[in-house]
Design a protein around this nucleic acid. Sequence first.
DNA 1: ACCTAAGGCGCG
DNA 2: AAAGCGCGCCTTAGGT
Length: 852
Amino acid sequence: MNRKVAMAVRDESCSDCKMCQYASVICQTGNGPDNATIMVVGKVPNSDKYQELVDEALGEVGIDSSLCFYTAAIKCRSWETEPGKTDVKTCAKYLHAEIELIKPKWILAFGNEALQALTGNSGIMKYRGRVIEREGYSIIPTLSPASIQRNPGQRQGWLADLRFFAAQVYDRTSTVSKPKVAVIDTADQLKRLNQRLKGAKLLSYDIETFGDAEYVQGARIVSLAGTLIDKDDRLFTFALPLGHPGSPFRTSWRKALKVIQKNMEAIPKLIAHNGKFDARWLRYHGMSNIGLTFDTMLAAHLLDENRQKGLKPQGTSRLGVEPWGIDTKNLLLTPINEVLKYNALDTYYTYHIYLQMRQELIDQPKLLRIFQNITMPSCRVLIKSEADGVWVDRERLATNTKIAFEMVAEQERKLDKWMPVPPHPDNHHCILCKSGEHIVAEDWPRMAKGRGKHADINFNPSTWSRWWLFDHLQLPVLERGKDKEDGSDGLPSMKEAVMMELKQFHEVPAVMLERTRWKMMCQYFTSYADNLDDRDHIHTTFKLAGTVTGRLSSGKEDEEKFSGRVDPKGVNIQQVPRDPFVRGLFGAPEDYWFVEADFSQIELRVVAFIARERRMMHLYQTGQDIHLATASSVLGVPSNSVTKDDRKKAKAVNFGFVYGMGWNKFILTAFEKYEMVFTEQEARAVRKAYFEQFPDLLPWHARQRRLVHRYKRVQSPIGRIRRLPDIDSPDKAVRGEAERQAINSPIQSFASDMTQLSMVMIDKKFREMGIDGNVIGTVHDASLFQIKKKDVAQALPLIKNTMENLPLDRLFGVQIDLPIVVDIKVGKHWGDATELSADQVYDWDEGILTNG
DNA sequence: ACCTAAGGCGCG
DNA sequence: AAAGCGCGCCTTAGGT
């Protein structure tokens, strides 16, 4: 401890918070030189081990650790109890006294508690890497060394924050200077901008928008900015005000876009950060053919899927520039000049980030091939898919919604029979109670926040429901959630498997289960209705950088893309229930067929291929079904009497064991999903039998473990990389997780890349052959299309042949030596009972339509 | 009137 | 010896 500081600040008799009861040293103040300009604030006084870790990291970014003053948000350290928010608040006075005394210029805040003590704000993930200005000093928060220790995967991002901190402290200016921005605010300048765009070699572009989605009422493009290289190789940054109230083009912004449209679209290299968003908006508002050749967000993800992929974190860590941006609730109320400056800076930094990433990709040819052949083409196809959306049967939606709500109501009516009578308000004299007609539930639960008001009846998994089931109706608590922070028991579980068990004790759980089923339908239907546009289509946003394996994810646009309060539109097309009652709402509009092309058992085929599993490969080469084989050999069902249900169970067994499931979890899932009871002995035997059936699987698991321990990463056959820094975690469970991820990732990645590649190729062939068909999207191992009826005979074999014979050898040098099989379904609706099979529509041998 | 975390479940 | 993987959305609890 620094004695001078301790003398002035420390209070050894402090008992203001609970921490002092357990601490061996009370009110331990900081340590370091009196004249330090850098103060480092942790959660509790540091142990030597963490001090070492911090010293090393600070050294790595060029900060001399011995010149820093080290202190903590909580001055009493104890392993017995964890400080809460109030403790942090109480203790903060000592920290602020230390700041008064040392007068640092810079404060590095490690972790949420330090952030809270220093600023009063919580949310370290939100505030990390920002500069928070205070009178006389600046605070930069980042993650705590303890969390880095637990989770080494975060180390890269953490070091980037530290590097940024060092850059601020030593005023190291970035090599990237700030651009001169040409503001285009007259018709004449717009003309000149158009001349500059003509023949330009490269353009990095970005727009600011207003509205929940490009297609909603009142949506507009607020401004457009760009950094370009013109035909004479001059770098030029501009900002064009559009729909902003302070813009000269506020009423004619679409016309202004029209002026530059042709020249902008003709630029051969178009660069943006998450450009799918911008391209979609521009398309919608008149720039119908805007391209995208290099997306820095997608490149960032390919280069390191674990790092933050946003423009700001990429900019500050790659370029060493100050964080930039505007903090605003409403872009339209922000002065136009600020909007333009920010908008332009985005494009300028995007350009510089692009230069770096381009080189990094060139240095890693496999990644470059993925980027060029899959990532960017896929992104361009999805711009159209997202813009088009998927057709929804509006009438069917209305009918089914009505049914679902009615069914919920019906179940709730059934529950009436067991409803307790709520207690009356205090001092209420009830005649029915006195006469014994009311048996009031006196222990009716009260709301935590409504100052003791009685809770409303709520059949969802709520406090009220739990009271009703487990207190009032006296059902047994079979399972609880995890313990709360204060150590008390978790809430009684109301999950499906538990409710299924409870059916044997009472009639209520069965009704509740039925209600839940319909309630869920209602949720989906409400969301769909909410997202229906005026063409009866709903839209989704596919994220190409949303998963660590390279799969696409689907849902709403990221809220960060917008300023202020928004309710982004979009539904997740990848989690539409398979129930035809829901899936059958989606389909193709008049004169089109809805087509779904599925890779059959693609993940298992990829497992067979990557693991070189001889028996699996043989089964596929001889046209057999692995799930069926597993059902008969592992579950002991004769192969000729395997039912659909057996096969379903076998499927779960296959995926579970292939990806490293143990017998323990097997018992659990078998029971919870299929109500099959296995003893420990039986479960062990099943697992053993499984791996005897496929003897090359365990050696492959071992190989993946070796690889990830050695290289800290694994690769898919075409070279997509999953970095797994957690493999070095001191925590065994975390290491185990990384090992299983090393097994799963190449499989999931490769299967997903096959789907994306097929989507890209089919879209291309549709255009080349003039087929009126569009890609609607992908669902991991399936692609969805809508195809004009007259073109479907031509399209179906094309889809099937393309998917079954992907040019993986030509593009990536990978030869698949087992058959890939694609199933195609065609119909008016997706997943409908009336759906036609491909063979009914198209005779593959004859090449003619036979039905439909 | 907001925000976050956890539980639970939809999909592959 | 023990260990499925990958997502997004909705709801509630509990906090400011």
